[in-house]
Write a protein that binds this DNA or RNA. Sequence first.
RNA 1: CGGGGCGUGGCUCAGUUUGGUAGAGCGCUUGCUUCGGGAGUAAGAGGCCGCAGGUUCAAAUCCUGUCGCCCCGACCA
Length: 562
Amino acid sequence: MKLSKCFFKTLREVPNEAEIPSHILLLRAGMIKKTAAGIYSYMPMGWRTVRKIEEIVREEMDAKGAQEITTSVLQPSELWEESGRWGAYGPEMWRLTDRSGRPFCLGPTAEEVFTEIVRNDVSSYRQLPLMLYQITDKFRDEARPRFGMMRSRNFIMKDNYSFDKDAEGMHESYMKMYDAYSRVFTRCGLNFRPVEADNGAIGGTGSHEFTALCEFGESEIAYCDNCDLAATVEKAECSDAPRETSDMLALEKVNTPGTKTIDEVAEWLGIDRTRTIKALLFITYDEEGKEKEYVAAFIRGDRELNMTKLVNALGLREFDIAFADEAKMGSVTGCVGGFTGPIGLHNCKIVVDSELTGLRNLVAGANEEDYHIKNVNYGRDYEGDIVIDIKTLREGDACPKCGSPVKHAKGVEVGQIFKLGRKYSEAMHAYYKDENQQDRVMEMGCYGIGISRTFQAIIDMPENHDENGIIWPMSVAPYHVIITEVKPGDEAQDRVSERIYEELKAASVEVVWDDRDERAGVKFKDADLIGIPIRITVGKLAGEGVVEYKLRRETEKSELTV
RNA sequence: CGGGGCGUGGCUCAGUUUGGUAGAGCGCUUGCUUCGGGAGUAAGAGGCCGCAGGUUCAAAUCCUGUCGCCCCGACCA
């Protein structure tokens, strides 16, 4: 490719819309353009890299026996009605109707479509296991798109689906993908960690998230240097404080004027926050979005609630629960916020963190303004409708596996794999006949890689960018080599550039020749910005058959005789 | 959806407080000089100041509404 013919424009200044390095550099390098909030177009250089990533993914998927197909982004509502997700998916789904009023959606994922395809054509155990995948645009109307393609409303995703005879087969398929994903992200030049993850709304029995470690990521993971714990913060289990055996003391109502927060209560009473009970009130909604019931969650005063765990405990969807406002709170507790406690609380579902059941003589709100109650004990004074771990594992907390302090890290979720089990195959009647002519339900798994997100995350790796621009790993670089001809029109430079260009092309090296009529400085800046791994500069010494060789990743230059 | 900020040539921004001929730098076109790390110079092209109402002799500027975009939070397979 001659750069003079390439549709390509770089920006000198940082576009207003970008904040993080990868987004800034993609825009400055002219690799992507914004079309609307969370909707991007790819320019030639950027698209080449996307296709490289896709090719790596294809190779690794094919190597595990998965076969590529493509399904339409338009999906009819009937399929989603069958799985029960048409109602359950929520506001993220782009819904539309055809001219006759029939409802469709732009596919946010494709479990239903793949299950439908497989159930029609697979009827025998002899056809299993089966893995199918596709690389297509996906659509999710994100509440808040941000950071360019990190969280966009239209993105490229590789999704595949495994169909197995039984749970053991599903586990094998799952592990194949675990392995394939590790290979994909390694080849793409990402510093990543596979971590245990919550299955979330997609359902199923197990999941891992592949997280590219990076300070700008939106995922937070907890890990332990002393053992193999690695999980998303939503998923990570917490170990409870040791059970206490001291005597239960008599309840005592104390005046605590104006102490609405845990810190204020603890200070007023001169106690540690760990001796208090924190109350959080929620309102839940049913499938139609109508208010369903109130939920009070209780955790030790110093803990943080883990919303994912709470939602799972209640069997809800994330968007079916919200904090209760002051007015709603009052209708449950008969009191202003800040003095809510578990004793005597009714008209709501009570969820108690498991840790509280083993602690003695804590301080809780009295459900009466300016009063708290001392010596509150689980079992004697209150009980929960649900008792379960609903707290967040924080940095420095004891590792639930080995007890060492856990660490936290930020990252970008570039892929996730799920054991779905029978959730979709059962709902959609994906059956096969086994050796004994018996109908059996297929065991499914599903596996996703955010291609466009990976594209951007690669750049955010500290080793893949510097103050001058992108430093693409060779495996995904838009071109391997850039020939920077300092002075096009110079007979010797033209001749040498052309020869190198033709020879590299003949050797299947992907090469771009900067033959633009620009000053050398501009060309060097652009070459650095777009991050081509190898630069060959054809300049003054071209007449003597000498050119300069430089790696984008290194600072040293060397001379080559050609 | 709550909070904050911003919409002025392709890009980055000034001008808005205190209403009075729409500006700069970069980019683009042409000429001359320059030419190995984002050149200098001269001459140009390009904007109904997001949109719609209103106030006023007069609105980029004041008022109301609306749309879009960004950030924080909520939310997020």
